[in-house]
């Protein structure tokens, strides 16, 4: 039990230290953690993104709480969240001491010139991971061998509709998530 807690703290502290660029930047680390530890599945991550979009708090915090709870109960949930917050807490305290110098440092600026595209590159890879569980059915394709079975067509149709809705209306993500849940139940996704 203590070992699990320590491992939780280590994994989430690492995530907190290396995820640069906000909420979704934690995704590549979560997928890595899922493969390595089996604490949660890829489908769990996708579900947690939805829960994060519909509840307060950032995705990183929500995921750490969820994974911590699943592996080691309430104490695990709280410890994992604190572990995620700890590295940046220390870093910010240091930066706050010499704010101006940090902001105008050309090396810091240079690093972000590289970090920004890297961050969204890994978010793109994470998006493919979500798509793999949401709109692609590899198992059915392997058994039938038909390319038309590779894609879950009703999911793709829903995805296109949601994309257009998001682009042309000002509906909030929470509403779109609720609609998707209802569509999922009615059409038996």
């Amino acid at each position: 039990m203590i070992r699990t807690l320590l491992q939780l703290i280590f994994e989430f502290a690492k995530t907190g230290l290396f995820s640069v660029g906000g909420g979704l930047a934690t995704l590549p680390f979560l997928y890595e953690m899922s493969d390595k530890t089996g604490w949660f599945t890829h489908a769990d991550i996708a579900d947690m993104i939805a829960i994060s979009e519909s509840t307060p708090g950032a995705i990183g915090i929500n995921m750490s709480t969820y994974a911590g709870y699943k592996t080691a109960g309430v104490a695990g949930g709280i410890l994992a969240s604190l572990a995620l917050a700890a590295p940046s807490f220390v870093i910010i305290l240091i930066i706050a001491k010499f704010l101006e110098k940090f902001r105008n440092n050309r090396y810091v600026e240079g690093a972000f010139y590289g970090l920004r595209p890297a961050s969204i590159a890994m978010i793109t890879a994470a998006c493919i991971n979500v798509a793999k569980v949401a709109v692609i059915d590899l198992d059915l394709f392997r058994t039938t061998g038909l390319f038309s079975d590779l894609i879950i067509w009703k999911a793709l149709v829903l995805g296109v509709c949601l994309f257009l809705a998001l682009k042309y209306t000002k509906l909030s993500p929470v509403i779109l998530i609720a609609v998707s849940a209802v569509v999922g139940i009615i059409f038996r996704f």
Binding site: L24, A43, A46, D47, I49, A50, E53, I123, A126, C127, V130, A131, V133, A134, V135, A155, L158, G159, L162, F163, L166, P173, L176, I177, V179, S180, A181, V182, V183, G184, I185, F187, R188, F189
Partner: peptide, 15 residues
Amino acid sequence: HAFAGIRVCVCVLII
């Protein structure tokens, strides 16, 4: 079923 539908939405939100 609800979460299977929601995952599609998550994909779109990330895109």
